[in-house]
Computed example of a mutant assay.
Amino acid sequence: MKTSGTASSLINENQNNDRQQRKMADIAQALQASPADVAALRRMAISEGGLLTDEMRCQVWPRLLNVPPNILEQEPETVERDNNKDYNQVLLDVQRSLRRFPPGMPDEQREGLQEELIDIILRVLKRNPQLHYYQGYHDIVVTFLLVVGERLATALVEKLSTHHLRDFMDPTMDNTKHILNYLMPIIERVKPEVHDFMQEAEVGTVFALSWLITWFGHVLADFRHVVRLYDFFLACHPLMPIYFAAVSCTEKRRCWIANVTWPWSITCCHRFLRICPTRPSSAERETCLSSSRHPNWPERLPFATAWRPPRLKTLTWPRRSSGLTRCSTSAGGGNCNSSNSSSRRWQSARRWPGPP
């Protein structure tokens, strides 16, 4: 029996290696096309295993973000740190980011990367004064730094910040709250029993804030899972992280029943929700990614149907350096409204017909 099991494992490993080799060849072919076949690259970034290697990500991520080659070739300018309004907060966050670097990395190398991380963040903010730093932004930037290096990371993060992350980088968190308010309608549509459980437990949506604004980089323990998610998110619509957040809740519904029992409490449920996406297996990860693009997802989620907490008296949001507001929600279901200019940026998202 052991011999049979070993032979089966070897066959599966060989088949997996063959699939990876074919995928690498397909990615290379799409890159060599003139112009590059971005549609094919998106399909391969989304499909099982993603882009497979960091070498491929260095070539494909710029195409997925449509960053012009001349921008990629520019050497990053020196950043002035003195009298920079964001420097102190960025420094504190970067100093607390030790676990985001590979275990066993020499201190000297890690400290050098942390200096580069600070420079990238300050450089992007200086070039784009309309952007406001938020705590958790560094979790996204460090992923790009570790994969593609400082020069490429600067160009990619700047494009990402002015597009996918733009709503997180407003002076207030109004638009971020709007995105979070998509979470419960999605869960209700797909797994009503999970939605009802979360409603009864009064967990709200704040637990998913760090998932959303860091693209799960802050909560996933394995860096391989982080870059796999980034492959997926970069190839999809900017709202895909909230769909994946919903899947992270619904796919763990059996664990809910086993680990969270009556009397339900906000503390107990929040504790479970914080840990549920942290250490997925590769199979669980791919299942969640596949489910995030399931055709049964809601086709559209207009603001009029966005979830409002029915009983929670207040929602208190973490502070950040750019000055947050607190959203007070009455028992009747009042909600914070964004400005007209902020709402206009959402028109395209409201018309989006669903995940690709």
Score class of each variant (00 low, 15 high):
residue 72 L to Q: 10
residue 173 M to T: 13
residue 231 D to G: 00
residue 230 Y to M: 01
residue 232 F to Q: 04
residue 212 L to H: 07
residue 203 V to K: 01
residue 82 D to N: 15
residue 201 A to Q: 08
residue 244 F to A: 09
residue 297 W to G: 12
residue 108 E to V: 13
residue 346 W to L: 12
residue 299 E to M: 01
residue 96 R to S: 07
residue 277 P to G: 14
residue 100 R to K: 05
residue 349 A to D: 11
residue 31 L to C: 00
residue 331 A to T: 11
residue 244 F to S: 02
residue 259 N to C: 15
residue 263 P to L: 09
residue 143 T to I: 03
residue 210 S to C: 11
residue 253 R to T: 06
residue 222 D to N: 10
residue 53 T to S: 15
residue 16 N to Y: 04
residue 14 N to P: 01
residue 75 E to L: 11
residue 38 V to H: 03
residue 288 C to W: 08
residue 312 L to M: 14
residue 165 L to W: 09
residue 268 C to N: 08
residue 251 E to A: 11
residue 354 G to A: 06
residue 206 V to D: 13
residue 8 S to K: 14
residue 230 Y to H: 05
residue 193 E to H: 03
residue 189 R to S: 11
residue 107 D to I: 00
residue 84 N to H: 15
residue 252 K to G: 05
residue 161 S to Y: 04
residue 342 S to Y: 02
residue 140 I to E: 03
residue 288 C to P: 00
residue 134 Y to A: 04
residue 244 F to Y: 10
residue 116 E to N: 01
residue 113 L to W: 01
residue 307 W to S: 08
residue 356 P to D: 15
residue 28 A to L: 09
residue 351 R to C: 00
residue 217 G to H: 00
residue 74 Q to V: 08
residue 132 H to A: 01
residue 204 G to M: 14
residue 26 D to Q: 15
residue 49 G to M: 05
residue 286 E to I: 07
residue 184 M to F: 09
residue 225 H to K: 02
residue 265 S to V: 02
residue 334 G to A: 08
residue 332 G to W: 14
residue 61 W to F: 04
residue 169 M to Y: 04
residue 5 G to H: 14
residue 246 A to P: 08
residue 33 A to S: 12
residue 210 S to L: 12
residue 232 F to R: 05
residue 108 E to C: 12
residue 339 S to N: 05
residue 132 H to Q: 02
residue 8 S to P: 03
residue 237 H to L: 13
residue 118 I to P: 07
residue 295 P to N: 03
residue 317 W to K: 07
residue 97 S to M: 06
residue 307 W to L: 10
residue 12 N to T: 07
residue 50 G to I: 11
residue 65 L to N: 09
residue 84 N to F: 07
residue 92 L to V: 07
residue 327 C to W: 11
residue 314 T to F: 11
residue 21 Q to K: 13
residue 32 Q to D: 07
residue 154 T to K: 05
residue 351 R to W: 00
residue 222 D to Q: 10
residue 82 D to I: 03
residue 316 T to N: 06
residue 330 S to I: 00
residue 282 S to G: 10
residue 132 H to C: 04
residue 341 S to M: 13
residue 92 L to D: 08
residue 162 T to Y: 03
residue 297 W to S: 13
residue 203 V to P: 02
residue 157 V to Q: 06
residue 168 F to S: 10
residue 120 I to D: 00
residue 276 C to D: 12
residue 179 I to L: 13
residue 30 A to H: 15
residue 275 I to N: 04
residue 78 T to C: 14
residue 21 Q to N: 07
